[in-house]
Design a protein around this nucleic acid. Sequence first.
DNA 1: TTTTTAAGTAACTATTTAGTTAGTTATAAA
DNA 2: TTTATAACTAACTAAATAGTTACTTAAAAA
Lengths: 208, 208
Amino acid sequence: MAKATKRNPERTKELIHKAALAEFSDRGYGGARVDMIAERAGVNKRMLYHYYGNKDDLFLHVLERAYEKIRTHEGKLDLATLSPEEAVRELVKFTFKYHHENPEFMRLLNNENLYKAEHIKRSKNIKQMHSPFVDLMMDVLKRGEVAGVFRKNVDPVQFYITVASVAYFYLSNIYTLSTIFGRKLSSKPALDERLEHCTDVVLGYLRP
Amino acid sequence: MAKATKRNPERTKELIHKAALAEFSDRGYGGARVDMIAERAGVNKRMLYHYYGNKDDLFLHVLERAYEKIRTHEGKLDLATLSPEEAVRELVKFTFKYHHENPEFMRLLNNENLYKAEHIKRSKNIKQMHSPFVDLMMDVLKRGEVAGVFRKNVDPVQFYITVASVAYFYLSNIYTLSTIFGRKLSSKPALDERLEHCTDVVLGYLRP
DNA sequence: TTTTTAAGTAACTATTTAGTTAGTTATAAA
DNA sequence: TTTATAACTAACTAAATAGTTACTTAAAAA
């Protein structure tokens, strides 16, 4: 735990980061208020400009950290030791779980797409951070293909996007979908059912 | 074509609606500016309050019209006369095409989910407008099941969400995905390839 | 111990914001 | 033609907005 001494730049920076993540995620870039970020962080607003420059740069910083976080978690998955089918199950489960437990990530991404990716286009860091999954996936898909349990010539990028899709769309649009279908899609049974469906879709597609 | 007489409430309302759709879609609710909407419409700002109440109500109105539009288009699809497989192909193609040609709809939805569906929760209209697809889908899935060409007991709502997912996620996140994967996902060949992949995924899943 | 650096604060500013006031004027009903 | 209604306008306002100025003070380096 961080010492709460009178001066602590690391702690202050971290408080600002956390508050900014919450505020941008809650209200979007356009709806987020710099004053609110400072207030949520319990820090003087001037500090925010001192450490992060301005609102845009702070948003980019928050995005970079969010990408870093998911890539780190992805990197920890050990798909290579599993059978192709088990690896795919694990991948779908991880993707679903991660987005469910970290909805801020989807909210930031939606917002970044609203602004046509203008922030991450400027970011060297994020561009280099392509998912380790894509390489891993190539191996898993190849192994499945050779073993005769997966269909041939699956494009790993298309496949990655599809795995993300079936989890992301459900979780990101859960409020409108729940309202329109009159179902509580965020209940535990509904979430379990959706994960099972996602797994069925992905494995169903892969059958040769 | 509308007469551009000095006074024309229908035309003024329509100009405001179009400008609001564009502004909310471009900048999100929080980033949209009432003054900009008036300017884009070429109309006095007061008119906006006169016809639509306030910013929130105007946003809800725009959302309602957007839902109405997609439901109308969906309603025109005639899946019942097609073979189950052809019906599914048509459905995937329509969904992909509609979202590609009407990206404002996804942007509005993303924004509405950012605000946890607070606007549409208040809307009687939208809640009643559940997709005619879900009923149509039930028929198509059943026909395919009986004919022995589709898997059994597919939940039409899960299925509908999945069909939307694979198109929506790709198109809505096209800017960040293109940046990260270093591929121009909005090019004609990339879009064609994606549609084919989506069709393969959905039909692959349905195989018994 | 002295000096330098950087962490932190309070109060401010120019501009923008959603929403309003107080009216004018075109048009359709009487 | 007169009257009532509603379309439309210009100018305004109170509050909020991103960003800044001018300063104090803790703590690391000399």
